[in-house]
Design a protein around this nucleic acid. Structure first.
Lengths: 201, 201
DNA sequence: TCTCAAGTATAACGATCGTTATATTTAACT
DNA sequence: AGTTAAATATAACGATCGTTATACTTGAGA
């Protein structure tokens, strides 16, 4: 790698990083190209040299990081024997992913659950579908093994995703998400999903 | 009420309605004043005659409809004896509110869970806090009466809101939300919250 | 060392944004 | 019937948006 190639890669990576920061703070639509290039200390044609356009930048950003997220999620559950362990591992893995870099979770969830943005609608959909199927499959296996009640897997997966994702969406915007997204919270949420919060009698 | 006053009130109401439709479809930021006045069939100074500015229009919209929402929620649970009934009534009331006019729920939830919009941040916060306290109080009474496990009321309220709100946020964007937000779903969600989805043994 | 293309910068394009100065209509009251 | 203020319209303001035509710099290969 020549000095020139290094410099170029650094510029691209820096643009990537600044874009992630701003997109996660203000969302895709409210972040302008000028915000990004100003934060990165470059000019507009530089950004357009490295990326096709604003949508292309966002897509590459999301696909890169969401790919990582999915990968971590899969490897976190693959060797676990029972459904309860896998569900807990999913929540903990998602929490850890958020704590490692809250920007990514913040961007993904608030983009997905926020007002639809026409230009980028298709980008997240493909990836969230994959993620939801991972949850559904895990739930399905839990039903088959008798760990979960024989209910509609889609409904159980929806409930589980609500309990897992919404706290991340909420707390990823705070100063220190790790303060809230603890192992205890993960266990408590899985507890709600499996046993509920009602008094046993 | 003179003919003139009627006409004026109609114009204001029509602007209100068109704004609600567009805001709920595209979000606050992505909806322009021109979109709204074009849909309403008036010109820009007319809108600025009836409302101070874009933020004022949004605030009046949100406070009007969120007030209705809170009111319905309160009256739905006030005469119910036990916690489980009140929780179910909350979900059903929220579902019915969404079905009656999906635009309102759609706007409220996707605004609240979407990227922060600086100008309107404070508007929703005050109202959602009220709503969350209503849930927390209900949960608290359930803990005291022994219907709910002796856990942190804030945590239980968070879990409950996740299960109640996220499905509304998701399904309020579909063609016919009533197709998804059924009484059965409401009961099933409360079931998850109280008893979980794990197999009893 | 010279050439040339990769990489970055200057400066502007047309479009759209929220907002408003100004003019015109029109219904209610004297 | 004439006056007046409420209500709406015309037309434009300045700012910002995503994008790009063009020109300059600079380092790698001949």
């Amino acid at each position: 790698m020549t000095a020139r190639q290094t410099k170029t890669a650094e510029t691209r990576a820096h643009l990537f990083d600044c874009a992630l920061t701003l997109f996660s703070q203000r969302g895709y639509a409210a972040t302008s190209i000028r915000d990004i290039i100003q934060a990165a200390g470059v000019t507009q044609p530089t950004l357009y040299y490295h990326f096709e356009d604003k949508v292309d930048l966002f897509r590459k950003l999301v696909e890169h990081y969401y790919g990582k997220n999915l990968q971590q999620l899969k490897s976190a559950i693959e060797s676990l024997p029972d459904c309860q362990s896998r569900l807990l591992a999913m929540v903990q893995s998602s929490f850890e992913f958020c704590i490692a870099d809250p920007r990514v979770s913040c961007l993904l969830f608030q983009t997905y659950y926020g007002p639809p943005v026409e230009e980028i609608k298709g980008i997240l959909d493909k990836l969230t579908t994959k993620r939801f199927r991972l949850v559904t499959d895990t739930i399905q296996s839990g039903i088959e093994s008798g760990e979960l009640a024989p209910a509609d897997p889609e409904f159980l997966a929806l409930s589980f995703c609500c309990l897992m994702d919404q706290p991340i969406n909420i707390f990823s915007r705070k100063k220190r998400p790790g303060q809230y997204l603890t192992r205890d919270l993960a266990m408590a949420l899985v507890g709600i999903f499996l046993r509920g919060g009602g008094r046993k009698n």
